[in-house]
């Protein structure tokens, strides 16, 4: 008797979420199997890889990264163009670090105006990341959503404290997509989706940021959370967890000691930038294998490596 591969079928599937506008929009999700399980069914779109840029000069980034961007990094609009032309990421993540109340504390109006210029300068879709200060992000995203109307960006992120205002302005009024952020807690991830849904935000307009950690820093909780979210979404057909997942990997991996320690401090560890890339690549590879549909990375070399890995897994 001929060998017949058994196939794991699931009743649920992950929503397909499109962001960006027109022919340059990109889709996240759409799968009805676990990540890269091409032998079981439809794996949906490829994992999307976005590069991170800032609204201010990246003072704290490594010299090697600053050198890649040179003068372009002085202006987010040029920086975005440079990244798009040179590295062709699937999307660009503009992080509004300059609006941080503990830093330059730029006004929402100023930050939003820059975000608009960036959006107009590039073709690829935009993810706009906030300051991670919940109060400021609320005001920031309300303004960003307004001035970017029509660009269909992802607002990263709304949390339990501010989901009402960000959901109402971002999605209901100006029709962007919203990332629902929870910190590695499957029950909270589900709850926040339900709350957004009860506010009137459609499940199809929500992407989840379920939290991240660099590998070696409690990453096993991240992996198991993503796994369980995907199994509930697919196996239990849990509609409140069938959103695609976006993971800002670089936000975590470039601040752990493996990436931060200079060669002088840790000569036995070798090149600092190599270490930073290694942390970023290992974490990104792990989250796309656990269920992330998009990752945000900082080093263009990391992006290239993760892209090659994903392509090789899909086209084996």
């Amino acid at each position: 008797m001929a060998f017949k591969t058994s196939v794991q079928k699931y009743t649920g599937s992950i929503n397909k979420l499109e962001f960006g506008s027109g022919e340059n929009s990109k889709a996240l999700g759409g799968e009805n199997v676990l990540p890269f399980y091409t032998f079981d069914g439809n794996i949906g779109g490829k994992p999307l890889i976005g590069l991170e840029i800032l609204d201010v000069y990246p003072e704290k980034w490594l010299d090697e990264l600053q050198q890649i961007y040179g003068d372009a990094a002085n202006n987010a609009v040029q920086w975005a163009r440079f990244v798009e032309e040179k590295f062709s990421p699937d999307f660009i993540c503009l992080r509004l670090e300059g609006a941080d109340p503990n830093g330059l504390n730029k006004s929402p109006e100023e930050a939003a105006a820059l975000a608009k210029e960036v959006a107009q300068a590039i073709k690829v879709p935009l993810v706009v990341a906030g300051t991670q200060n919940h109060d400021k992000d609320t005001k920031l995203f309300e303004k960003v959503a307004e001035v970017l109307e029509g660009c269909n960006v992802i607002l990263l992120s709304a949390v339990e404290d501010n989901y009402k205002k960000i959901g109402a302005a971002g999605v209901l009024a100006y029709r962007h997509k919203v990332a629902a952020e929870s910190s590695v807690d499957i029950n909270l991830a589900k709850q926040l989706n339900i709350l957004l849904n009860q506010l009137g935000v459609k499940n199809e307009d929500i992407v989840m940021n379920v939290g991240c950690a660099a590998v070696g820093y409690g990453f096993e909780y991240v992996a198991s959370t993503m796994d369980r979210i995907r199994l509930a979404a697919l196996g239990q057909n849990d509609k409140s967890l069938q959103m695609p997942i976006i993971t800002p990997v670089s936000f975590d991996t470039w601040s752990v000691k493996e990436s931060v320690a200079s060669v002088e401090d840790a000569p036995e560890w070798g090149s600092q930038v190599e270490r930073g890339i290694a942390m970023e690549v290992s974490t990104a590879a792990s989250v796309i294998a656990a269920g992330a549909n998009a990752v945000i990375l900082r080093h263009p070399g990391s992006a290239e490596t993760v892209r090659k890995l994903a392509d090789a897994l899909i086209n084996n």
């Binding site: 499957i186 029950n187 909270l188 589900k190 709850q191 339900i194 709350l195 009860q198 369980r228 509930a232 239990q236 849990d238 409140s240 967890l241």
Partner: peptide, 12 residues
Amino acid sequence: GNILYADSYLEL
């Protein structure tokens, strides 16, 4: 464990 807990599970 047939459904995943969330604070609003009764409302679904």
